[in-house]
Nucleic acid binder design. Structure first.
Lengths: 282, 282
DNA sequence: TGGACCGATACCCGGGGGGTATCGCTGCCC
DNA sequence: GGGCAGCGATACCCCCCGGGTATCGGTCCA
């Protein structure tokens, strides 16, 4: 199976429409139809059901969509990491660390400083991204290492080391009536009148249904809370950087958040090993 | 980057010889040379150093070898799992479980029975393989789920659930003078006179240097022990199926062995979820 | 110094991937 | 109900590229 065929199939499977998929791929529709037919013939498997009005995936087709995406990510990763390795050889060694924007704001500078102080430390680029994007960046080679936060982020498929564990706090507008409490429980904060929990986009970029406002990132969330439109339960380390118009109260029975450093299991370079070592020594 | 190019490069990088690589690939040498040149041109990266007497990998080349193997495994997995999904649709649903031959001989039948008793259970094929091969089979789609044994097997890159933990015993010929002891320590058994620890093949199939005999599998190992040529430290569950000419003595300070069930993180089918559930309930 | 070895180059051929034009089917709507 | 719009499949053509053979150029060894 060639990556070209996989790319074609993934495009069609995502669009469920040959014309649009062909447009997205920058080719005409007939060669795309042929390529998919040929792929099905070579696999000996029906991947799509076409009834001239709608295209749908067969069972095997949805397996190939899942597995094919993973395979294409792996190929992209090979490409990107090879190019970067070559740049490194010409005097610019380089690691890319990715983390959620707004998270680990205390840990990250400490980690970078500790690593930079090591002998043989290389340049570390920091990439900040939205929630749920880190896994993808790590898989397709745009990043080499990530700070993830269990149980929110999935660490599936990566090697990890635990760095620290912390409790959670509920973040409220400064004037809200509960801000004087020493602590709260999840039952107190899940349905605050007028302060619904925000909705984050899922893996497909779509928002689940519900009462809360739609948010994309941390800054947006904090601003919504300050406006009295939402509340949120966040790791307690966020208190250190909280704006003056926000308040935080510990939530005793909220699940503990574990910060882990994660990397693709097969790409353990010397530089990455050094960074992980520095992280575990913090 | 096309999988054809990756396959070609991996062949050359493994053989470090264009002629042999071409033969292995079933093509002539000139097209192979051209394909590699083209790959290097497209990547803008030198992958190989040729000085007309020897071919060596550049830094970037060894990165591409590592990443390319992983990517090719992912593509193979997509192919195999798609074909199997199609077979399933025609009335033959199917899971392939792989484990080391000779290991988990108590747990495995219990697991298979427990799963078979579940509603909606599908056929589970069992694949027995040599040590260190499971990870590969899981990655390239020849298997869907594995029983691994920490700390011997690497669980890197897979989702896992712990099933059980056990101590280890040293396995000796029945008449050996230590067999009467109630327990031993690692220091007692690492250098038994005339009974060296065997050597297992590494990831590349080569054996490390050392005094012990070379072994490939469990049966071979037990036979060598019975012959008085070797000894081995194994999980205590192996006692249940020990031959009469062998004896086992607990080793108190040997590392505990944890049996885990492992699967590729992105391929969680309904059938796989059922098997994992059955396993964790044992 | 000549021959063996090995990768690169030159050149040719054929298949297949890509294009345009068009067909055939199916809902939909006036 | 017939025409039409939308969509995937088919027909047909071109030319690029992957594969082959023959040969070259450099290097090590006898």
């Amino acid at each position: 199976m060639e990556t070209r065929e996989l790319r074609y199939f993934v495009a069609v499977a995502e669009e469920l429409h040959f014309g649009r998929a062909a447009e997205r791929l920058g080719i005409a529709q007939p060669p795309l139809s042929r390529a998919i037919q040929q792929l099905e013939r070579r696999l000996g498997v029906a991947l799509l059901k076409r009834n001239s009005r709608a295209v749908t995936l067969t069972e095997a087709g949805s397996v190939l969509l899942r597995e094919g995406r993973a395979a294409l990510d792996a190929v992209d990763a090979a490409d990107r990491r090879t190019r970067r390795a070559a740049l490194a050889a010409t005097g610019h060694p380089d690691l890319v660390l990715v983390t959620k924007a707004g998270a680990s704001s205390e840990l990250l500078p400490k980690l970078l400083d500790a690593y930079a102080a090591e002998p043989g430390a290389v340049t570390v680029d920091v990439l900040l991204c939205g929630p749920g994007e880190q896994e993808r960046l790590l898989r397709d080679g745009r990043a080499d290492v990530a700070l993830l936060h269990r149980p929110f982020d999935s660490t599936a498929g990566f090697d990890t080391e635990e760095l620290c564990t912390e409790g959670q706090v509920v973040v409220l507008p400064a004037g809200y009536h509960l801000t004087g409490r020493a602590h709260l429980r999840m039952a107190d904060v899940t349905a605050l009148p007028g302060l619904p929990m925000p909705r984050w986009p899922g893996a497909d970029g779509a928002y689940p249904d519900g009462p809360g406002p739609e948010v994309r990132d941390h800054a947006q969330l904090l601003q919504l809370i300050a406006l009295g439109r939402a509340s949120a339960v966040l790791p307690e380390s966020c208190r250190a950087h909280l704006r003056g118009d926000l308040a935080a109260v510990p939530v005793l029975d909220a699940p503990a958040v574990t910060t882990v450093i994660a990397w693709p299991p097969h790409s353990r370079s010397r530089a990455l090993a050094g960074l992980v070592r520095a992280a575990t020594r913090l």
